[in-house]
């Protein structure tokens, strides 16, 4: 093989990977900017560009009025909606995988539809319900919570169901063959095996809820969540602390995901 052919071959082998990495870089450019801007010392609030390095934003994250309150509200709504959606969704996933019952087809459609409808339509329909039920003037925490559980529920069911149906039921059979009761089998074998799926679903729920704007904006009334706060200040000047929250969220989430991946690998190694 001539050197030229070798070079051509090497490029052919690695070109796709290189292009793929370029796409990944494209996905991270805005996040790098957000992280950079969290250390920005802007000369004026109207000019949104990097003027100088400072730790001020990180040391005083709650300086812009109302921002931290909106973060707390988003966390509260996110935790509550995640809790309810994860419990209901996990029960439903068990029902769908482990039990036979009538009406499975329509139920599957009912579960997929909320994910298939555009958010603006989902939000409009909930607003229509709340208005016609006389809650038009009482939009707020409760209506946001209801809306969030509704769109998180489908994602939880699908995620947990995928984990559950990929489960090797030989392990459960073995437990039962070793005289474990149904209860013991469930809590000692089935549940620990499904748990990573449930945890993943909960994380997904929380980030969907925390990040949602379109549906929330229609059903929030005067309540301000973090994305709504950002939307509000986007029209004026964005306080750099918004970037602090964005970066912190990113770091926390990546830590959780990488942490669980590392423990999983360690356990897999220990088991082997």
């Amino acid at each position: 093989m001539s050197p030229l052919q070798k070079v051509g071959r090497w490029i052919g082998e690695h070109l796709v990977l290189a292009l793929g990495l370029l796409v990944l870089i494209y996905m991270f450019v805005p996040i790098a900017i957000v992280a950079l801007m969290s250390f920005n010392d802007p000369s004026s609030r109207n000019v949104y560009k990097f003027d100088g390095f400072t730790l001020h934003n990180w040391l005083n994250p709650c300086e812009p009025s109302g921002m931290c309150a909106s973060v707390v509200r988003s966390v509260e709504i996110g935790l509550l909606a995640t809790l309810v959606a994860t419990i209901l969704g996990t029960l439903a996933a068990f029902a769908l995988v482990r039990h036979r019952f009538a009406g499975r087809g329509p139920l599957n459609t009912l579960i997929i539809l909320p994910m298939a409808a555009p958010e603006i339509v989902l939000g409009s329909s909930m607003l229509a319900l709340f208005v016609s039920a006389g809650f038009g003037g009482k939009l707020g925490f409760v209506t946001i919570f209801i809306a969030h559980v509704t769109f998180c529920l489908s994602f939880v069911i699908i995620t947990v169901r995928a984990r559950l149906s990929g489960l090797d039921d030989n392990l459960e059979q073995a437990a039962m063959d070793l005289y474990a009761t149904e209860n013991q089998t469930f809590w000692r074998v089935t549940f620990p095996l499904v748990f990573p799926g449930i945890l993943g679903a909960a994380l997904l729920s929380f980030s969907l809820s925390f990040d949602d704007f379109i549906i929330t904006n229609l059903n929030a009334g005067q309540t301000v969540t973090f994305p709504m706060y950002v939307w509000g200040v986007a029209q004026r000047g964005i306080p750099m602390q918004v970037n602090v929250i964005g970066t912190a969220m990113f770091v926390i989430a990546v830590t959780i995901v990488l942490g669980s991946e590392i423990t999983r690998r360690r356990r897999a190694k220990a088991a082997a």
């Binding site: 991270f28 973090f226 939307w231 986007a234 970066t247 989430a253």
Partner: peptide, 8 residues
């Protein structure tokens, strides 16, 4: 991972 920073 980009999902972990807010869409907005």
């Amino acid at each position: 991972a980009p999902f972990f920073t807010s869409f907005l």
